[in-house]
Design a protein around this nucleic acid. Structure first.
Lengths: 147, 147
DNA sequence: AAAATATAAGACAAATTTTATCTTAATTCG
DNA sequence: CGAATTAAGATAAAATTTGTCTTATATTTT
């Protein structure tokens, strides 16, 4: 019940990039250094981000990474799903055929509802929110205190 | 970003038990059979539940498990935490000393808020909710649609 | 009382996932 | 063209999850 180190590193790396002037080419070496993460691991993470199209990569000397999308449009949900895969709280939520207790799954709707809430929450934060240091709670008091 | 098979099995097992008359002694063999789960795995799961005090175990012939608490008072959060351990969405939320980016962790408050919301949601469902077939959404429309 | 049976407890093991590192390929610069 | 720098891709170690197998305990039967 947590995000992976890889997703955490990815988010921190992208926030670091977003703090630079738009279009800046960033090296994994610098990104890793400034996010307290293993450079070689960060390398593979950015490889995945590049494959997803979220960032663009340049090989060779003076290579590196740039954004392929506006940081405002890159949500935490997007990153977590690119790195960790789809957010699915329980097997029975994936689809009907993957639920062993077809037609009679007591817990199906609970997981579905909580999953909806979670993905909405993760979608409500963007990389830009953190880069701008303009963070404020996206979740209202009522969200935090539902019955 | 999901609960484990073990937690899922635990929940289903306890729901199965809760459908029986209060005080019924249940065997792992039956619990497993009725929840489509491996009996030997379920055995270990109930061992953990027994250690936690949630259920009581009896060894030997005519042994088995009974509730040690009212199903109404057993929340999904309790079960998930007993089986999977504490719900902590990201390392930086555990405590200040575990955050590499002390005093300057951009994402700390996001994870903290989402975690609060998630644990509240998991606390809002009890085993009795599913055993009684009286399930209805615990999450209001506004919860599912916060900005 | 001893043996057989039924049950959970606990030790052990396989499989999967996560977290990395190491090697290769590509590009630039001198 | 060779050296340096960078990402890409292959490989590997570690941790976690999922599961099985053996042992201990209690009950029942003889």
């Amino acid at each position: 019940m947590n995000i992976s180190r890889a997703s955490d590193y990815a988010i921190r790396g992208l926030v670091y990039m977003a703090k630079k002037p738009a279009g800046t080419v960033c090296f994994v070496k610098d990104i890793a250094k400034n996010t307290n993460s293993p450079a070689s691991f960060m390398s593979k993470i950015f490889q995945t981000l590049a494959k997803s199209g979220l960032v663009h990569s340049f090989i060779g000397t003076k290579g590196g990474f740039t954004f392929n999308a506006q940081p405002e449009n890159i949500t935490i949900k997007m990153i977590v799903e690119i790195i960790d895969g789809p957010i699915v709280l329980n097997r029975c939520v994936v689809n009907k055929s993957s639920c062993q207790n077809i037609g009679n799954c007591d817990v199906h709707f609970m997981w579905l509802d909580i999953q909806k809430m979670l993905t909405k929450a993760l979608s409500s934060y963007s990389i830009a929110d953190f880069a701008n240091n303009a963070f404020k709670n996206k979740l209202s008091e009522s969200d935090l205190n539902f019955a």
